[in-house]
Design a protein around this nucleic acid. Sequence first.
DNA 1: CGGTTGACCAAGT
DNA 2: GACTTGGCCAACC
Length: 113
Amino acid sequence: MKTKQRVTEFERQVYDLCSKVPKGSVTSYKEIAHAMHTKAYRAVGAALRSNPYAPKVPCHRVVASNGTLGGFQGSINPRGHSLRKKASMLTEEGLEINKGRIKEFEERLFKLQ
DNA sequence: CGGTTGACCAAGT
DNA sequence: GACTTGGCCAACC
């Protein structure tokens, strides 16, 4: 398991923005990148991938920009794996998931900045 | 400093 | 709807 020992400023911004997403809303990798005035969507994902602030940062509220769940806990497997858990948590928070896809995604999307 | 990788994205086939 | 391609950018080796 890849544990982060030192985080960069870039990653810190990512974690900070994630923690600002309220329960019942979600944000996307793209939105986070956009909020930081960069196009490094992938770097955002990479940052969450090693998420050293596990409980502190609700990384399950970050999904792909097309409304699908993206990845979770090291995997990006679309069919029942860790993604299932991510979906469950989001459901618990009041969101509606339909076949791995957020229902009314754009309305539930928390707009940063 | 160059090349590879990645929880991405959009457009094309 | 599934798969491929090109592009983006930071972290890592």
